[in-house]
């Protein structure tokens, strides 16, 4: 069973992702606070982290950086509604495995997740 962590401060988005992933063979944890998310990662192993960018108090790029510092083996997919090339580049630099822009279809999301996890 794959363990997935989703961090997004918009609960509606979390709900949507939940709907899209509910039939998959995954155990998904939804967190709406980036700090909470970071501390959870410290305590638990995850196969994949899905992370938004625009968040308070810490944005997704920071979260990504943190994760990669402490747990470099954990792949992170940035899943954001934000359209900004600067951020995309940054995300790549800090080691995100993929960069997806909301909204994303269920099929494409799942494909992308498996693709990253099997790398």
């Amino acid at each position: 069973m794959k363990e997935i962590l989703v961090i997004d401060d918009d609960n509606f988005v979390l709900e949507s992702i939940k709907k899209q992933l509910k039939e998959e063979d995954m155990e998904v944890m939804f967190v709406d606070n980036p700090l909470t998310g970071l501390s959870i990662i410290d305590n638990k192993h995850f196969d994949l982290v899905l992370c938004d960018i625009k968040m308070e108090p810490m944005n997704g790029i920071e979260v990504l950086r943190n994760i990669k510092e402490k747990h470099p083996e954990v792949p992170v997919i940035i899943l954001t509604g934000y359209v900004d090339d600067g951020l995309l580049e940054k995300a790549k630099d800090y080691g995100s495995s993929d960069f997806l822009i909301k909204p994303i279809r269920k099929r494409e999301l799942i494909d992308s997740m498996y693709s990253v996890m099997t790398q």
């Binding site: 949507s16 709907k19 909301k102």
Partner: peptide, 11 residues
């Protein structure tokens, strides 16, 4: 825009 759209899409 994208966040709400996501919700609509998922639904």
């Amino acid at each position: 825009i994208n966040n709400p759209l996501y919700v609509v899409l998922a639904n």
